[in-house]
Amino acid sequence: MNMWLDEVFHVQKPVIAMLHLSALPGDPGFDTKAGLSAVIKRAREELDDLQEGGVDGILVSNEFSLPYLTKTEPITAITMARILGELLSSIHIPYGVNVLWDGRASIDLAVATGAQYVREIFTGVYASDFGLWDTNIGEVARHRARVGGSNVKLLFNIVPESAKYLGDRDLRSITETTVFATLPDAICVSGLTAGAPTDTQSLALVKSAAGDVPVFVNTGVGADNVAEQLSIADGAIVGTYLKAGGVFENKVDRDRVEKLASQVREFRKSLA
């Protein structure tokens, strides 16, 4: 159970930190005056703070490409590949990528940059803030095989942010059929938005229904609740808490990273 987690992270209950990239070329919020060099500079600084702060992995995403597309323009993944190319020599922990909200582009970026995992919405049809949001996991899985990405682990977010599942189905049945029919490498459980707490009852329900598939708590994790969340989940993905003041838009604060990592180390001692 969770063998691939052990092979990739070499720790129990890994904590993956988000490396949120500033708005990119093509995004409405891109700073054309500061240019791409400013995006790379901030990413490098935050990478250093995350790694030195003690997290187990990172997930690089275009978090500030607001408003998001469900089929991204080529410039987004191309630019992210350029940024990762600049950072790769400095990355010494496992890393993944997430091109919001585009599963195929995420896989392409992972293959091009050697990323070991991606997180995306791979299943379901939703009414969302971005319009009607459709997916096709069969097509995406075959695309992964065609481009040589079969070793890239797919983390399925089954509670997407800013969206509602159109089918009238409960979370347990969604989890069970996702595991059986779509072959996820892990399942992520989220709150309503980035930084919003993930309901522990929902997390426990998904964990009980997921069988041998690892379950990650995907939002709302901080130093004060990480032990509680990891007592249920197999790992955590953390973004907003690690920012200065716990504010989504701010830069990573190394003190907060170290505080979270310290709590995780203490929790792991209880597992020994």
Score class of each variant (00 low, 15 high):
R142L: 05
V99S: 06
E7T: 08
M80A: 03
S202T: 11
K33L: 15
P184W: 13
I158D: 06
T193S: 15
A43K: 05
L59I: 14
L192K: 12
I158T: 07
V125E: 14
L205T: 10
R256Q: 03
H20I: 02
N225A: 14
C188E: 08
F64C: 00
G57R: 02
Q201L: 11
G54R: 01
S37E: 12
G148H: 08
F64Y: 13
V189I: 14
N218Q: 10
F130T: 00
T198Y: 01
N157Y: 14
G131A: 06
M18R: 08
G57V: 01
G85Q: 02
E258W: 05
A194S: 12
V257T: 04
L100M: 10
I107L: 15
A204S: 11
S22H: 06
D108M: 13
A227E: 15
Y95V: 06
N2L: 06
R119S: 14
D102A: 09
R256V: 00
S190T: 07
K41R: 14
A141G: 05
S162E: 14
V159N: 15
W4K: 14
G114R: 04
N62F: 05
V125A: 13
T123A: 12
P160N: 15
S150C: 07
Q229T: 07
L230Q: 01
L155Y: 01
V215D: 02
V213A: 01
Q263C: 12
E120V: 07
N250T: 01
E52S: 12
T177C: 08
A23P: 00
K207P: 05
V221N: 03
G235Q: 03
A210T: 03
A194K: 02
P25C: 04
L203C: 09
